[in-house]
């Protein structure tokens, strides 16, 4: 099963939850894979410290124009919704960083002057951390679009009983790309007005995609009870609560998982794993 760990707000504890779930599941003998889909700033490796066994380029397709065939008719620029093509009187320019690889320009070119060619936009890294199969995507600095890299990470997912997808924050395309096709989306939040605001946006996104969801309340004893009331009112299960504990922050700052570093947290994460299994119906 595929579980995405996401949040509206950044910095709520997605990676903490995802890496600790991976560790506890693998130690319980389950075939586990951890996919870091936060390709603009992957940080799961800091906690899982994988041995990288393979690296390969992540590519996206971008159009190339054959100037000998181009008649400068402008059909390619007209079809492009992303403004990535400029059709000038004597030249057709492609701006690869704006291209969404839809292939529209190649389809409409009446003289077959446009063909898509691969362009490297990042690196896929595969390895192991204990028994966890580890995959991360690293988008090259300056690349504007992460979904193609996220698709590459998902396509490289090894066969495993439990696949954990560590999502980027927010509710836009990269998150949609990450959670698509998952069996459950865990939304990590903080019980604060800001946390609730962004949680509600994330809930709307997940519901629009018709995916099952659950909430993890991190730093559960700060803030107020509004997140709890919201979840109750919207019939969203709170699958775990992680207390605010200085020892958690200290472990995090040293790159340690809380299961290893803070007494009592292995049991909490184990409990969350059990709730996830119930939530997915197994």
């Amino acid at each position: 099963m595929r579980i995405a760990i996401a949040s509206g707000k950044g910095g709520t504890g997605k990676t903490t939850v995802a890496t600790n779930l991976a560790q506890m599941a693998a130690r319980a003998g389950r075939q586990t894979a951890y996919l870091d889909c936060d390709v603009e700033e992957p940080n799961g490796h800091i906690f899982l410290k994988p041995a990288i066994e393979e690296e390969r380029p992540i590519e996206k397709l971008v159009p190339t124009v054959d100037p000998r065939l181009c008649t400068h008719c402008g059909a390619c620029a007209k079809i492009c919704r992303y403004g990535a093509v400029a059709s000038l009187p004597n030249e057709t320019l492609i701006f690869a960083e704006l291209c969404h690889s839809c292939g529209g320009c190649e389809l409409v070119c009446p003289v077959d002057a446009i063909h898509e060619a691969p362009l490297t936009i990042g690196t896929l890294r595969l390895g192991r951390s204990e028994a966890i199969r580890f995959v991360e995507g690293v988008l090259n600095v300056g690349e504007a679009m992460s979904p193609p890299a996220i698709r590459a990470v998902k396509a490289a997912a090894p066969r495993a009983d439990l696949v954990l997808l560590d999502s980027p924050p927010g509710t836009s395309c990269p998150v949609v790309e990450t959670v698509r096709g998952c069996d459950l989306v865990l939304l990590v939040t903080e019980p604060t007005p800001f946390g609730l605001h962004d949680l509600s946006l994330a809930v709307e996104m997940v519901r629009a995609m018709r995916l099952p969801l659950g909430v993890v309340v991190n730093r559960a004893d700060i803030g107020d009870r509004k997140v709890h009331e919201y979840c109750k009112g919207h019939r969203i299960p709170i699958m775990a609560e992680i207390p605010d504990d200085r020892a958690v922050a200290e472990a995090y700052s040293r790159g340690l998982t809380i299961c290893d570093a803070v007494p009592g947290f292995a049991e909490r994460i184990g409990g969350l794993l059990a709730r996830i299994d119930e939530g997915v119906g197994r």
């Binding site: 620029a77 992303y82 403004g83 990535a84 400029a86 059709s87 000038l88 009187p89 320019l93 701006f95 704006l98």
Partner: peptide
Amino acid sequence: NAAQGAGIQAAQTVA
């Protein structure tokens, strides 16, 4: 009002 690529498309218009 374009989400992106305004400069490129504006230049095309000017051309």
